[in-house]
Each structure stands twice: as structure tokens, then as C-alpha cells.
């Protein structure tokens, strides 16, 4: 029987960061996954737990603009960073182009994996304003069990379009 690794005792530490534009300072086990700080300490529940192994992407957030799977990101690494979750991407009144595209294509079914996909997509179109189908296949590797990939692909193209049109207008 394999011997399981045992966690070292938690070291409580103070961690300060900005989340969705707002400064926070939390006392927490520095090694604990940032996901649980976001969900259970800051009560931002839009970021989901799917596997805890960085395999499904449901917990994807942005750290300084980069897509990060927060179940595999120790809280201590958030120190001094700017974090964005689905709640900070946009809202019902002022949706992010990715959210707008998701609404137009009526993407979600159960909806559970969708925030992770939208965060990954927002990072993608930031880096690559006009992703090809192949770019989408290579970058968007989260898991959706309801099988909304078909609509998602359309929404990702649409999001890029929307983002490019707002950028060119401004």
C-alpha cells in the first residue's frame, strides 16, 4: 500500500492582495490553495472546485492577468498580486465581452464549469485577439460534462469579435 504524503502543519501567515480591484488582507495557512481562501474566506463562490488537481479548470482565475488554476496555487503566492475572479470579470449590467458572447450563444447548461471556461477564454483573447479554432483547441482545455463545447467555440469567436469592436471604438 502506497504511503501517503502527510501535510506539514499549517503556517498561518498574513497575505495581502487585490481581488476584483479591492484590497484584502487575510490570515491563513500560506500553503492552502487560494481557491478556498477565495470561496470560504472571501465568500466569492463563482470560482468552482472541480477536482483539486488542476485537471478540470473549474477554478480558473486570473493572477496579474494570467490564467491560473487556483486549486493548485498556494495562498502565499497571492501576496501583492492582482486577482480577478468571475465576479470581477463583469456583471449582469456590464458584462465582459466573454460573458456577453456567452449570453448571446446561450452557452451554459448546468453552469458549474462555465466560470472557469470564461476566465480561460478572457485570458486567451487578451493574448490572442483573434484565436483560430486550433488556438481554441490548444488553449481551452477545461472540462465540461454537459458538453457545451460546441456553443462555447462559437461564443469564444464571438467574444473576440466583441472585444475587438470595443477596443477599436475606444
Amino acid at each position: 500500500m502506497a504511503q501517503l504524503f502527510q501535510m506539514k502543519p499549517p503556517t498561518k501567515m498574513n497575505i495581502s492582495f487585490k481581488i476584483n480591484g479591492k484590497a484584502h488582507s487575510v490570515d491563513t495557512d500560506g500553503d492552502a490553495p487560494l481557491l478556498w481562501v477565495i470561496r470560504d474566506v472571501l465568500d466569492l463562490k463563482g470560482t468552482k472546485f472541480g477536482c483539486g488537481k488542476a485537471a478540470c479548470g473549474a477554478c480558473t482565475i486570473h493572477v496579474d492577468g494570467e490564467a491560473v488554476r487556483s486549486c493548485s496555487f498556494a495562498a502565499k503566492f497571492a501576496e501583492g498580486k492582482e486577482i480577478t475572479t468571475i465576479e470581477g470579470l463583469g456583471n449582469a449590467e456590464n458584462p465582459h465581452p466573454v460573458q456577453q458572447a456567452w449570453i448571446e450563444e446561450i452557452v451554459p447548461q448546468c453552469g458549474y464549469c462555465q466560470p472557469g471556461f470564461m476566465m480561460a477564454t478572457a485570458a486567451l483573447i487578451d493574448k490572442n485577439p483573434s484565436p483560430t479554432d486550433e488556438d481554441i483547441d490548444d488553449n481551452i482545455i477545461n472540462i465540461c460534462r454537459c458538453g457545451t463545447y460546441y456553443r462555447m467555440r462559437k461564443a469564444i469567436h464571438r467574444a473576440a469579435e466583441l472585444k475587438n469592436s470595443t477596443t477599436s471604438n475606444s
Partner: peptide, 21 residues
């Protein structure tokens, strides 16, 4: 008709079992 839960699910507000408290 567009899903009634569409916007909520896109902005991350619906409560799933794991979100309950």
C-alpha cells in the same frame, strides 16, 4: 426563449450545493 438562468450562470451567481452555507 433564452434560459432564465442564463445571465446568472454567466456572472457566477447561482448557488450550487457546494456553494451553500
Amino acid at each position: 426563449v433564452p434560459r432564465l438562468d442564463l445571465t446568472d450562470k454567466v456572472v457566477g451567481t447561482p448557488m450550487f450545493g457546494i456553494d451553500a452555507s
